[in-house]
Design a protein around this nucleic acid. Structure first.
Lengths: 241, 241
DNA sequence: CCAAAAGTGTTATATTTACACCCATGC
DNA sequence: GCATGGGTGTAAATATAACACTTTTGG
């Protein structure tokens, strides 16, 4: 090693261990779908000057975890779920974004099914609530901007990969799936064309069951085919609806 | 504010200012196109145990700059360019990714035109060189993985937005543009279909000039239309080739 | 029998693909 | 005159978009 090189390393060591450190956090935009509305899970913010705003759920990244680990930890702690769909979106690093000091945050979004278990979990956390995405006008910190960029990314990805299923119960009808896409993308879809398209993708499995105790003709229920899903999650598809 | 809330804030303050800080860096995958090959700009790594490897160009994010600022600073310093196309890709935060300590890095990619000015600039930095993307088998740190994920994102984006032009000189022929896409995406394209498609997009402007001193019929030269470009950079397009 | 959602095909239009020859220039 | 890339159109196949009625169940 030349002197020059060891000089460089000493400069780096100083920077890494002293001068240039920052706190790194994760913030999660947790999407759920309920009552035909797209929602996100938020907490009551208790930090001035945002005491009366909602904020995204997040935490500081600890020395012994990756940002993915931290996001999973936040998700488990706040929702009770492990193994949820989780996607890194973007770093937000504006200098004054956090009132207590420099905090660089990594935004994630995830998709979960709002089921009974989860609602039981929520009762233990009274400061956490689901709010409709289209009713949000502001959030604490730069969280509105973060939410917006995660929403855009999710809307893009739901057209390219079969991830919408993560928001639905295991068994679902075709109309449920169509409504999900209509709400998430804020578009109107043609029933027949939608069904043809999904059929062509071959990702749905008719499980031979039908809806019960509905006051109309019961719909067939579907699963989605795990193996096709795993393939398409990687390769993607063109889901122009 | 309740006691609980101020407790929380004190915990946060401690975490932000002491316990949980990390160094944050940016690493840039700088793409260029030359001699019908896609290249990236790399530096000779002088940090053990990677002394004989190339590494991406990057630096620690300073306390007074955003990650975007840091990436632009690296780009200006290493290439001589300001106002280059720059896109944030992904955070890499594996615990042992850097031998000198915990460094969380934000990956960026950018597209630049390898022109005369830039080559002059490079002569002042003898440790920096262009290497062909398809000849890279390893890089220092986790930079191969970073390069790979930036390449994938760039290949995806070049089909959705008219960003390919950033790699070409201001005036270019249609065949040059087609070759660029073929090399970047590693596919073969049909000349007539490619031209029809670009025509339909309306992003090219025939500048009324032709190639000079080529030993075949000279090609028309094109600009790309800035205003259409700016619109499409935001809205995107479908550039299925 | 009424309300409510389920389910089902066809036609027109637009998009994509495949493909082959003559043209202008430098040497 | 020959080598090199420049430039052009058409037809077939595929994908998309628009559209309305009958069926099944619960009350």
């Amino acid at each position: 090693m030349t002197n020059k090189a060891s000089d460089n390393i000493n400069i780096w060591l100083t920077q890494i261990n002293n001068d240039f450190k920052a706190a790194v956090s994760v913030d999660c935009v947790i999407f759920g779908y309920d009552n035909d509305a797209l929602k996100i899970l938020v907490g009551q913010c208790d930090m001035p000057p945002y005491e009366h705003e909602f904020s995204l759920l997040g935490d500081i990244v600890r020395p012994d975890e990756t940002t993915d680990d931290a996001a999973k930890r936040v998700l488990y702690h706040k929702t009770g779920f492990t193994d949820v769909f989780l996607e890194q979106v973007q770093v937000f690093s504006a200098l004054k974004r956090h009132p207590l000091g420099r905090v660089i945050t990594v935004a994630y979004y995830s998709l979960i099914e709002i089921d009974e278990n989860h609602l039981l979990h929520l009762e233990k956390n009274p400061k956490i609530a689901w709010i409709n995405v289209d009713e949000i006008t502001s959030l604490a910190f730069d969280h509105f901007e973060i939410m917006h960029s995660c929403l855009k990314k999710m809307q893009k990805q739901i057209r390219e990969r079969p991830i919408g299923f993560n928001l639905l119960p295991e068994k679902f009808s075709l109309l449920q799936l169509q409504c999900l896409y209509e709400v998430v993308l804020n578009i109107k879809l043609d029933k027949r064309n939608f069904r043809r398209k999904l059929n062509a993708l071959g990702i749905l499995k008719d499980i031979g069951e039908i809806q019960e105790s509905v006051s109309h003709r019961p719909a067939r229920l579907y699963n989605f085919d795990k193996s096709v899903y795993e393939k398409m999650k990687k390769t993607g598809f063109n889901f122009d609806l």
